[in-house]
Design a protein around this nucleic acid. Structure first.
Lengths: 322, 322
DNA sequence: CTGAAAGCGCTTACAG
DNA sequence: CTGAAAGCGCTTACAG
């Protein structure tokens, strides 16, 4: 960890130039995709020298010169995901890396001052978010001139989710619907959109407006939530944790699922395959969402070889609970 | 998003200097904690000007000058956490921010080339990790001269976890132990240490070596795993998902838990409070782990006001499964 | 108590 | 086809 501890100083473009017997300008040009302006043999010399020295350009120098960095920031929602973050962002990381861009994650929330500082400091090319930007976030992005892309840029995914849950319940014959939020609203960034979509489906089907529930992941809360219902309800749940908790509470109360109570979850977490009966839920690739946001971002940034946004398909996982 | 779209160009230290009628050198000094070298009134002028212009120093300029950035990178393990990432890193973010350092998250894994590039590019002050660094990672850190801190820097937490699980099972009277890994080893970065600790407890207690199981989160795998056991075993599980799956499989087989089979999980995820019987598991604050790693890092970096590493206490959550 | 100067590593217009 | 020069924003030794 000491400077003289054995590791060589990182090579600079000047080192590469010297090693190759050329100027820094030439090194820079060749390494930035303008090799064709030079004699092939010159380009080779540069490449070899860079290789031999393990040269990595300094982000600082580049940033200073260009006024913007090669970073792309992804804001992580304040939620527990069923999926690994890794699985979600793997492809995004790769796609960006192919373009010389580096993905860096940042917890959303925190103070907006922090975001402001981060933008000022990193001067990222873009900010991606898996949940809608808040008003404050949007304003800061605009002020700093950093383009931001979220899940609402390309239609409202969460409305689709709520709609699909509700339509499934209606198709299964439930005439009274409810939407069950996760009580801690910090963890429920998507709930509002989904609840509203459920209400719309009800209205369209000529059903009464949905009952709105909120619970934490424990049996007391779940039991109380059931008190607000009568047998015959179909419940669209914020996520599988909520659905499994309601399933357990219903069992203790002697309500039969799916006869007395319909339950549809969201996420298809591993444990939803282990309940009895298996949970009916919705599955989708969060990684597709991330790639979708990314693709739209790259298009907007004018990358000519931007990937086409993959479709986000929501699939019903047929279980025994609705 | 256009440069002329209305947002002002970010202010530079030169702007602040001009606004305050002073030199850039003075601005820099005052803003970097050397205000006492100047007339109080001068310092005031600088502060006010910076405030009025919404000045944020450019990371690039600073980085170039100092040769190291104000970033600290945290590597996120390839695991699904029971807890929110936010809850884990909130305090770390704050503590770092107080010292003018910015936390940035990075998925661990990925190729080691990527890490190398990241280090070369960001020149972070330190890299923290919630799982032990791999050999390759450790080498790259050393080569780049970036200090790295992981969960083994201060004793082996995972050994503690495995030991506690095993000791609990032994204390409850189980004479044959097993350790149940999560099959997908990408998601099992901690399994090896824990299994070994279980084996040590067995040896110390004069019990046979533990049976080693591996399963995915589904009933087929769990049923197969049970085949390798006989009634009377106590199983230390990699996490609560594994434990709950085994609990369900045992129920289907007609084994009584905890009489025929003892189960102890790890993490105390919300759903572990909803099973029947309630899962016996281990709870700890992952945020304490993160803060612990951070505190050790700050001490090593020679910050004089480094926080003292908080103790990481592992608590048995008494349930009905062991 | 304050400022002029140098230089961190990079890239891009320009000159040859 | 290649190189010398300027400048991005910052901080630190130095001079006054």
């Amino acid at each position: 960890m000491t400077k003289d501890g054995g590791e060589e100083m990182a090579a600079t473009s000047a080192d590469v130039a010297r090693h190759a017997g050329l100027s820094r300008a030439t090194v820079s040009q060749v390494l930035n995709g303008h090799a064709h302006r030079f004699a092939p043999e010159t380009a080779q010399r540069v490449l070899r020298a860079a290789e031999e020295l393990g040269y990595e350009p300094s982000v600082a120098g580049r940033m200073l010169r260009r006024g913007s960095s090669d970073f792309v920031i992804a804001l992580i929602p304040h939620t527990t995901f069923g999926t690994n973050l890794q699985d979600i962002f793997d492809t995004v990381t790769d796609v960006l890396a192919q373009r010389g861009l580096t993905l860096v994650l940042r917890l959303s929330a925190a103070s907006s001052t922090t975001l402001d500082r981060l933008l000022a400091g990193m001067q990222p090319r873009a900010v991606l978010s898996l949940q809608p930007f808040s008003e404050a976030e949007r304003r800061i992005l605009d002020e700093r001139g950093v383009p931001g892309f979220d899940t609402t840029t390309d239609g409202d995914l969460n409305a689709d989710i709520g709609r699909l849950q509700a339509q499934h319940l209606v198709a299964r014959g439930y005439r009274r619907l409810a939407f069950a939020h996760l009580r801690d609203s910090r963890q429920d960034p998507y709930g509002a959109s989904r609840e509203e979509a459920v209400a719309q489906v009800c209205a369209a089907a000529g059903l009464p407006a949905p009952t709105v529930l909120g619970l934490g992941i424990n049996l007391d809360d779940a039991t109380q939530a059931l008190d607000a219902l009568a047998p015959g309800y179909g419940v669209a749940c914020y996520n599988d944790d909520v659905a499994i908790t309601l399933l357990t509470a219903a069992g203790q109360r002697g309500w039969n699922v799916p006869t007395d109570l319909g339950l549809i979850g969201m996420d298809n977490i591993p444990l939803s395959g282990v309940t009895a009966p298996r949970l009916t839920t919705i599955e989708y690739e969060l990684s597709a969402v991330a790639q979708n946001v990314l693709a739209i971002a790259l298009q907007a940034l004018g990358q000519d070889d931007a990937p086409t946004p993959p479709p986000i398909d929501l699939r019903i996982v047929a279980g025994g609970t609705a």
